[in-house]
């Protein structure tokens, strides 16, 4: 009978004998000019990404430092466009609307997706079928969702018909400054919640059953199990979903452009739509570029935040 240490020693010696020494081992790198061969494979994608993703961001940054006028030509104004933007009441309103929208829609969508994921991973008749009904709308392109809901929200549309059935008065929805933003949130959640739910269902399914069995034996209620087992163990997918959802909701454009054009009274003037009108309706491309830079920076900060959060957890 050998002691554990000697056995381990023999083991590693045996392994060393079988495996060739690292330097002699042929590696995956190409024989002659690995960098050249690799770059040849990478070239089309790299050029595409540099020209079509990074260059426009750089162009926006560069252009945002200039101002073009019909008479005076192009002039370097440093941060002038940014200062002008932050003093502009329309932009201030767009920032405020986007902030309210972001603070409301993301927690609501993620919480709904989480609760539905919990609901649909429980053992119950037809769970899989009902779950797939929630997932179906993810195939609907946002612009198509906007068109469908434009009919639903009409004064004589489906939404008011349901309210009537419940004995509630008809609502103006998209034509009311108080309801328009919420109406847009509903049509976005219809196509969004199922998508985020899929990530969370995958996360919940990864949790070992035995955790719940142990908790049940200890007498923990279903509610307690949800908060002490499920919630902490899907933190990673939850954090990802929250960030990815926030980024995608920062870019909401189609429903605003199709349904409300930012109105009524600027109540749905989200940042993306404000950039669009500034560039094309107002024709102020330089200031619009400054706004693009601000939007990209906000997105990058949110994503960086996620990386930090996830890294510090490991």
């Amino acid at each position: 009978m050998t002691t554990p240490t000697t056995r381990a020693g023999a083991d590693s010696r045996a392994r060393r004998a079988v495996r060739p020494a690292p330097p002699a081992r042929p590696t995956r790198r190409g024989r002659r000019h690995p960098a050249l061969i690799a770059l040849a494979f990478l070239a089309p994608a790299l050029i595409a990404l540099l020209v079509l993703r990074l260059a426009p961001a750089a162009v926006a940054l560069w252009d945002s430092l200039f101002r073009t006028s019909l008479l005076g030509g192009t002039q370097f104004v440093a941060l002038g466009n940014y200062l002008e933007l932050f003093g502009n009441p329309d932009f201030q309103n767009a920032l405020l609307v986007t902030l309210v929208f972001t603070i409301l829609i993301n927690p609501l969508q993620v919480a709904t997706a989480f609760l539905l994921a919990v609901l649909y991973t429980r053992k119950a008749a037809g769970s899989k079928i009902w779950r797939s009904l929630v997932i179906l709308p993810i195939a609907v392109p946002p612009a198509v969702s906007a068109v469908i809901w434009s009919v639903i929200y009409r004064p004589d549309g489906l939404a008011n018909a349901f309210l009537d059935l419940l004995g509630l008065p008809a609502q103006p929805f998209l034509t009311s400054p108080q309801q328009a933003l919420a109406s847009i949130m509903v049509l976005l959640s219809w196509i969004g919640v199922g998508y985020w739910m899929m990530f969370l269902i995958a996360g919940i399914n990864d949790i070992p059953r035995s955790y719940y069995e142990a908790a049940s034996l200890d007498g923990a209620s279903a509610w307690r199990q949800l908060w002490t087992i499920t919630f902490p163990l899907v933190r990673r997918p939850l954090a990802f979903v929250l960030v990815a959802d926030t980024v995608s909701n920062l870019l909401v454009f189609a429903p605003v452009q199709i349904l409300t054009k930012g109105g009524p009274e600027g109540s749905t003037n989200l940042l993306m739509y404000d950039i669009f009108t500034r560039a094309y309706t107002l024709g102020d491309l330089n200031t619009a570029q400054a706004e693009v830079v601000i939007l990209v920076l906000i997105t990058l900060v949110i994503v960086a935040l996620q990386f930090r959060l996830l890294r510090s957890e490991d």
Partner: peptide, 19 residues
Amino acid sequence: VIILSFLIPFDAIAIPLAD
């Protein structure tokens, strides 16, 4: 470069690219 390219959302830079 590849990671950065998908961290910058395409829709956000669509207007400078269209230009």
